[in-house]
Nucleic acid binder design. Structure first.
Length: 608
RNA sequence: GGAGCGGUAGUUAAGUUGGUUAUAACGCCGGCCUGUCACGCCGGAGGCCGCGGGUUCAAGUCCCGUCCGCUCCGCCA
């Protein structure tokens, strides 16, 4: 133990001291943020997780303290004993210009700016090499370096604030759910591998040669079993693992707030979750949410926003002008329509920021969505500027559908429905940003409801579960399961915030006859059912309660609430886009001996 | 699986149609300085231009390959 700590422990954090503390003898510990050497007097900004305090070493006062302070460098870890003084206290009372000088000495940028601590004792706990980047919020360094020296990156106040926000979120969540009768119950990470869905990370079993566990993608099946087991209300803040390609808002391991309730319908579940959101926004951000939250059907979202997670901070909407362009004389679009495609339109009300250059950049922007082209016209008296070959009649029809007014721009995209919607939805967000139409600072929540129960594969026409095979169809659609499965809508819901899906769930099937119909529609036969879900189906023979649930992405929630730009900024030790950890340099190959112990042989470039 | 962007001093960047010793700012090191808080002033050090090939009299610059990072499409029941 250091000599210093044997006899001292700190009395205050570096963000705590105020003018009222003047005269106190205090002990502070922290890291050297910066130092300003003025010869006889050295000023040091001392930082800990709570803030920064200026400490002062004066040669005429204590030469030995001054000598130690003279050697201090960035990020050294030190402890000091000293006296809190109002800045400029030593100025002679009543001296000329006293008030002005005092004011000049106060640092209004710091909460502790009125005071400073004059050092009586100082101990260097440890020195630091010059860090590869400055430990400050506006340090402009690349992610590669930040991740390699993550422990330094995490010293930055903004990162500490982000992780503090995250901690507050989990604390409030536990508190709210606990008060509402939810039990926190853990479930296994190492689970049975089931094909389909997200790719799994596999864990070899030494005790069972040739056999593997999968790391859980989510506790889905276990939480349903807990409902069968009569726990009624369950939650867990749980790590999930998916071996899929990564994005700004996706990590290979991420955390869910996982929730399941028995004897519940959509209304009760959503109300309960709205209560959770209200508690979070109040406790963490001090914001009162207006409840209930808005609801929108999947169909409306796709039609008007082109996505299943609309950003409602932006008022622009899409409309379908396929009917307008049919027999319009515009061959390009007519061909697309004849091939089963659609034409969607985004109307931009007259806006000076929509420059020629911005319009010209849209086709390139559209390419990333697989779009072949983007057509933009300006609505003028008696015609469209920017597109010829459309009959007057068709033009008027389209103007009417789009609600176009003089001076507006109409942006058209023609392709298969999915591509057209995704692309124009993307352009909508892009332009909202570029034109400054997206209202920053708003919290736009919405429940997305009534999505399709199944997804139909474009090429094969095969049907797959859109969510998972235990999601209930809407009661009124049960009759369609055999005749028109693609039209069946689900008792499922997503919670969307500012264009980000922060949670999703469903009411589950608890009736075996209904479950059989769904398996039938999915063409999952008895053998496959047994192999994949046998234990769950067995459990459902013993009086399963009606139940449903939801899972929130804690990382995304934290990212939005902390105002962070990336998931990596709210995860202490995240991974790169290729799933590697640049600090520990993982993953790595392992020795032949380790592999042999697991009965595994590595074959490079195995044909797939 | 695919597309785009990036990699030059410790860091962030500049580097012209290929042409002398590869610039700048910040940081770092030394000295000076009683009030700074983006302190200031004087001086100094610091480079495998991601890596490997190729073209050329000559490559940071052009070509091919490769690695790493970022963003997106596919993917994520």
């Amino acid at each position: 133990m250091s000599e210093f700590l044997a006899t001292h422990t700190r009395t205050h954090g570096c963000g705590e001291l105020r003018a009222a503390d003047a005269g106190k003898r205090v002990i502070l510990t922290g890291w050297v943020q910066t130092y300003r050497d003025h010869g006889e007097r050295i000023f040091v900004d001392l930082r800990d997780r709570g803030g920064v305090t200026q400490i002062v070493a004066d040669r005429t006062r204590l030469a030995e303290v001054h000598a130690i302070a003279d050697a201090l460098r960035s990020e050294w870890c030190i402890g000091i004993v000293g006296e809190v003084r109002l800045r400029g206290e030593q100025l002679a009372k009543g001296s000329p210009g006293e008030e002005r000088k005092l004011k000049r000495m106060t640092n209004e940028k710091l909460p502790t700016g009125e005071i400073e601590v004059w050092i009586d004792e100082i101990e260097v706990f440890s020195r630091a090499e010059t860090p590869p980047f400055a430990i400050e919020d506006d340090t402009d360094t690349n992610d590669q370096l930040r991740l390699k020296y993550r422990y330094l990156d995490l010293r930055r106040p903004r990162m500490q604030a982000n992780l503090r926000t995250r901690s507050l979120i989990t604390r409030t969540t536990r508190d709210y759910l606990g008060r509402n009768g939810f039990l926190e119950i853990e479930t296994p990470f190492m689970v049975k591998y089931t094909p389909g869905g997200a790719r799994n990370f596999l864990v070899p079993s030494r005790l069972n040669p040739g056999c593997f566990y999968a790391l859980a993608e989510s506790p889905q099946i276990f939480k349903q079993l807990l409902m069968v087991a009569g726990y009624e209300r369950y939650f867990q803040i749980v790590r999930c693992f998916r071996d899929e390609d990564l994005r700004l808002d996706r990590q290979p391991e991420f955390t869910q707030i996982d929730i399941e309730m028995s004897f519940v319908n959509e209304q009760l579940l959503q109300t309960t979750m709205e209560g959770l959101m209200a508690a979070l926004w109040k406790d963490v951000l001090g914001v009162e949410l207006a409840l209930p939250l808005r609801r929108m059907t999947f169909a409306e979202a796709m039609d008007r926003y082109g996505v299943d997670k609309p950003d409602l901070r932006l008022d622009l909407t899409l409309c379908d002008v396929t009917a307008g362009f049919a027999a319009s004389g515009f061959k390009l679009f007519e061909t697309v329509i004849a091939a089963g495609g659609i034409v969607k339109c985004l109307r931009i009300p007259k806006n000076d920021k929509l420059t020629r250059a911005l319009i010209d950049s849209l086709p390139d922007f559209g390419k990333q969505f697989g779009l072949k082209g983007v057509t933009t016209v300006r609505v003028q008296d008696g015609g469209w500027q920017g597109l010829k070959g459309v009959s007057d009649e068709a033009r008027q029809r389209i103007n009417q559908i789009a609600g176009a007014e003089l001076g507006d721009a109409l942006i058209f995209v023609a392709d298969k429905a999915k591509v057209a919607n995704t692309a124009l939805g993307g352009i909508r967000l892009h332009l909202g940003d570029k034109l400054g139409l997206t209202r920053k600072g708003e919290w736009q929540f919405m429940w997305l409801t009534d999505p399709p129960l199944f997804e139909v594969d474009d090429t094969t026409g095969e049907i797959a579960a859109a969510h998972h095979p235990f999601t209930s169809p809407r009661v009124e659609d049960e009759g369609l399961l055999e005749t028109a499965p693609a039209r069946v809508l689900a008792r499922a819901y997503d919670l969307v915030l500012n264009g980000v899906e922060i949670g999703g769930g469903s009411i589950r099937i608890h009736r075996s006859d209904l479950q059989a119909q769904v398996f039938q529609a999915l063409q999952i036969g008895p053998d496959e059912q047994r192999a994949k879900f046998g234990f769950l189906l067995d459990a459902f023979k013993y009086g399963p309660p009606p139940h449903g649930g939801i899972a929130f992405g804690l990382d995304r929630l934290a990212m939005l609430m902390a105002g962070a730009e990336s998931l990596r900024d709210v995860i202490a030790f995240p991974k790169t886009q290729k799933g590697s950890d640049l600090m520990t340099e993982c993953p790595t190959p392992v020795s032949a001996k380790q592999l042999a112990e697991l009965f595994i042989q590595v074959v490079p470039d195995l044909p797939r």
